[in-house]
Computed example of a mutant assay.
Amino acid sequence: MRPLVAHVDLAAIRHNYAVAKRCAPGREAFAVVKANAYGHGAREVVSCLHDEADGFAVACLEEAAEVRALHAGARILLLEGCFEPAEYLIAAQLRLDVAVQGPEQAQALLAAQLPSALNVWMKLDTGMHRLGFSPEALRDWHPRLRQAPQVAELNLMSHFANADLRGDELTEDQVACFLSVLDLDFDQRSLANSAAVLTIPAAHMDWVRPGIMLYGATPFSDIGAAELGLRPAMSLEAQLIAVREVAVGESVGYGATWVAERPSRVGTVSCGYADGYPRHAPSGTPVLVGGQRAALAGRVSMDMLAVDLTDLPEAAVGDRVELWGVNLPVDEVAAHAGTIGYELLTKVTARVPRRYRS
């Protein structure tokens, strides 16, 4: 068996959900499990939070159906709403909470013949300009949806653009925009993503939506997950499968981008971009070999990557390699690769086996 495994600590996910609840006392929390629970396995994550989560949030009907099969009674929020008019019937059959993010979706909802009314979340565009009604359009559509037989609860939601940048002016403007429509009659309100759960109590409203924090990564560039009390849920672990001596002036890997400046030892690791490790991670990106730091050497290949072991003379074939995890934060690796922890976690591919501990 190829020595590459993503170990997933379900107890860490339960711990991180509890952190979100402690940050927003008295509020309810949708555990965001879209994108296969950020690469951790939706089935296992939903099961581990079965008796703890107030609800779950997903991006599409396929994800919602998977959650419903695992939890008959869960409140499940469809974050992007229905993409086709026919999907409203499926949403009603699955007993979903459905976002309505614009006039087209609202019109399709009002035209739908449904067996039961839906809990609807009107999405307000508070300044991100991705999805949502303008404040004026929201005021226009509110009474129509409030009176519609297709609607049970009528709720309000929005999404932050810059909550990960503390003290950002746009975030203040978005909160003010959200508050400006609360004279309208809404049953429930939701605004806070992970960053806002952790640092913006004014945004907590009735429901919070912890996403990346559930998986033990930070939404911030200047505060680590450990400082926030979060525990990493995934450790991506491989193995040294070869070690060789490389003379001064010799290169390693495709494109010959890494050249030995001293007599070097280079190890080959059983992980590559087909497993989800970022191909664009540069030389110098950290890894842990036998618990000690080493650095990427040269370009990441499809199934392998190389590391400079020159300062680890005891490193040998068979040694454990942590690409990220408990001892090497995924956010640190992501920063070296010019991306964010979200992307690394969600891109771990299906060929990497997940092993779970609770």
Rank of each mutant, 00 (worst) to 15 (best):
L184Y: 02
V100F: 02
A337T: 09
V248I: 14
A20S: 15
L179I: 05
L344Q: 03
F83Q: 14
G272P: 02
N119V: 04
M234V: 15
R299K: 11
T218D: 01
V100L: 03
P25H: 12
W141H: 08
M1S: 12
I340H: 15
Y38Q: 05
L77P: 00
R357S: 10
S270I: 07
Y215Q: 05
L61F: 08
L305C: 14
G272A: 11
T171I: 04
L165R: 14
V266K: 03
A6Y: 01
C60S: 15
V46N: 01
P149F: 11
G249T: 11
L61S: 07
L124H: 05
D173S: 13
D51R: 15
W141T: 13
A148S: 14
S221G: 14
V120S: 01
D275W: 04
S116K: 12
D206K: 08
N16G: 08
I90V: 15
P282H: 08
L288N: 02
V58R: 01
V317G: 02
P219V: 07
A297N: 07
V269G: 03
V248A: 12
E136Y: 07
G127I: 05
A337H: 04
V248K: 14
G298M: 07
E343P: 00
V33G: 03
L124N: 06
V67F: 02
A316F: 05
L145W: 10
A247C: 08
G284L: 06
T218L: 06
M304W: 12
A163I: 13
R265H: 10
H7V: 01
L70K: 11
L309F: 07
I90Y: 02
V33E: 01
V259E: 12
I223D: 04
G127M: 03
A152W: 04
D97G: 10
G132T: 10
A334D: 02
L230G: 00
A35M: 11
G255P: 04
F83I: 10
G249F: 06
I223F: 06
I13G: 00
M213D: 05
R320L: 12
C60H: 07
A65C: 09
A295T: 10
F160V: 10
D51T: 13
L79K: 02
V307N: 00
E44F: 01
A117S: 11
D187F: 06
P313E: 15
M213S: 15
E172V: 13
A337R: 05
P329A: 09
V98T: 10
A242R: 14
R299H: 11
F220W: 10
Q147C: 12
L191K: 03
G338Y: 08
L240C: 08
T339S: 13
P85T: 10
L154R: 01
